[in-house]
Design a binder for these strands. Structure first.
Lengths: 239, 239
DNA sequence: CTGTATTTGTCCGTATGTATA
DNA sequence: ATATACATACGGACAAATACA
C-alpha cells in the first residue's frame, strides 16, 4: 500500500512560514483600512508578543510589507514602523519592475508595449483637448521647448517624456497618468542600447507643436490623430 | 553660526540599512539578467560572507525580494533561494494592491477606473475582431453562456469577467490582457457592497452576444462600438 | 551639550524541515 | 525504515541611531 501525502487525500493547506502569516495578517489590516495611513504600528517586540513569535520573525514580516511599500520604518527613539501613505510612485515602480522582467523573459515584446502606449495616450490627447487648463498648456509648451533645445539625445528624450506626461495629466485621469510612464521607461531601457536615430528629432519637435496646437485650440479629434501619428514615428525610430 | 546638516550643504545620500543595500544589489543582478530565472542563489551563509553581513541581514534582504516575487525560497536539504520565473499573476497582484490603496485614499475614483477600463477594452474588442481564433470564439461563447445561466449575481459577475478576459486575450496584446483585470477587481470590491441592480442582466447578456457576433464576423468597428455601449451600461448599473 | 531612554539594526546560536544514502 | 546532512526558520542578545530632557 502506497503512502499518500495529505495534500493528495485531503484538501489542506501547506503550512506557511510564521513570517508570511504575520505579514498576511498585518497586510489585511492595512488594506481593510483597520490600520490607517500614517498610523504607527506597535513596536517590534510588542508585535512579536501579540503574534507569539520572536522579534526576528516580525522583522522579516515587516520586510515583506515594506517591499510593497505598505509600511515605512525609521529607527531611533521617535522611530518605529508606520503605515505608509499610498503613492503613485510606488505603483509605478512595481509595474516597471514587473514589466521589465516580463519583457526580459519574452512574456511581452516591444510591439505590445508600443501598442499599449498608443491605446493609452491617444485617448488622453483627446481628453486633454477638452479639459486642459492654462497651467497644463504652460507645462506642455515648456517641455516641448526643452525638447527642441536639448543638448543631446538623452536630454531631449527626458524632456519628451515630460511633454507626454503633461498631456496625460491634462487629460485628468490620474490612473492613466500613472500607468503610462512605466511602459515608457521599460521600452526605453530595452531600446536604449540600440540607439535612436537622431535625424528624426526635427520631426518630433514638429509633432509636439502640432499636438500642442490642437490641444490648445480644443480640437479633440485632431489632437488624438496628431498623437497617434507621433507615436507611430517614435515607434519607427525606436525612440 | 548655525550648523547645517550634510544634506543641506552637500548632495550626499542618506546611509541605507545593510539589508536594503544587499537587496538592491541582488535585485540588480536579477533584473539585469546576470542571475537567470530558476537559478539558485548561494546559501544564506555564503551570501552573508560575500556581502560581509550576517545571515539574518541576508534573510531580511531576501524577504524584500520575495515580496516582489523576484525570488522563491524553500527549506530543506534540496531547498534554497531561487530566482523566480516572472509571472503575470504577480504583476496583477501588485497592481491590484496598489490600486486598492490609491482608491481607498481617494487618489483615484471609480469614474477614473471605469474610463480607464473603457480605454483599454474598446480597442481590444476591435483587435479581437481581427485576430480571434476559433479557440477564442469558443471561450467567449462558453463564458457568455455561463453568464446567462448563472445561479446568482455573484456567479454571473464572475463569468462576465471571464468573457471580458476572453476578448482581451483574443486581441493578442498580452500587456493589455494583464492590465485590465486588476481594475475590474478593485472596482468590484469598492462597489460590491452597494449591490448591482439585477434587472440589467438581460441587457448584459444581449450585449455579450452582440459583441461576440461582431467579433466572430470580423467587424472591428462594430465590435468596438458594442463593447463601448456595453461598458456604459455596466457603469450605469454599477456592475 | 551631554546623558539617557527608546526603537530599529545586526549578529550568533539553535530548532525544524526535507531529501537522500 | 532510519539516520544523516544541509537547507531555511526561529529565538535571544548586543550594537547603533535618534530625539529629548
Amino acid at each position: 500500500m502506497s503512502t499518500v501525502t495529505p495534500s493528495e487525500k485531503l484538501s489542506v493547506n501547506r503550512i506557511e512560514p510564521a513570517y508570511k502569516q504575520v505579514a498576511a495578517q498585518i497586510k489585511k489590516l492595512i488594506v481593510d483600512g483597520t490600520l490607517l495611513p500614517g498610523e504607527q504600528l506597535p513596536v517590534e517586540e510588542k508585535l512579536g508578543a501579540s503574534f507569539g513569535v520572536s522579534r526576528n520573525t516580525v522583522r522579516e514580516a515587516l520586510r515583506l510589507l515594506s517591499a510593497d511599500n505598505l509600511v515605512r520604518t525609521t529607527r531611533g527613539v521617535s522611530g518605529g514602523t508606520f503605515v505608509a501613505v499610498p503613492s503613485t510612485e510606488v505603483l509605478q515602480g512595481s509595474i516597471e519592475t514587473s514589466l521589465q522582467l516580463l519583457s526580459g523573459s519574452n512574456s511581452i515584446n516591444v510591439d505590445e508595449l508600443f501598442e499599449t502606449r498608443t491605446i493609452l495616450e491617444v485617448p488622453c490627447a483627446r481628453s486633454a483637448a477638452l479639459n486642459r487648463t492654462e497651467e497644463d498648456l504652460a507645462r506642455m509648451r515648456a517641455s516641448a521647448d526643452r525638447v527642441e533645445h536639448g543638448v543631446n539625445a538623452l536630454d531631449r528624450a527626458d524632456h519628451s517624456q515630460d511633454f507626454h506626461q503633461a498631456v496625460l495629466d491634462a487629460a485628468g485621469n490620474r490612473l492613466l497618468s500613472m500607468m503610462a510612464p512605466p511602459i515608457w521607461r521599460v521600452f526605453r531601457k530595452t531600446t536604449l542600447a540600440a540607439g535612436g536615430k537622431s535625424e528624426a528629432w526635427a520631426d518630433i519637435d514638429a509633432d509636439h507643436l502640432l499636438i500642442l496646437e490642437h490641444i490648445e485650440a480644443q480640437r479633440p479629434e485632431e489632437a488624438a490623430e496628431a498623437m497617434r501619428m507621433h507615436l507611430v514615428r517614435l515607434h519607427e525610430n525606436r525612440l
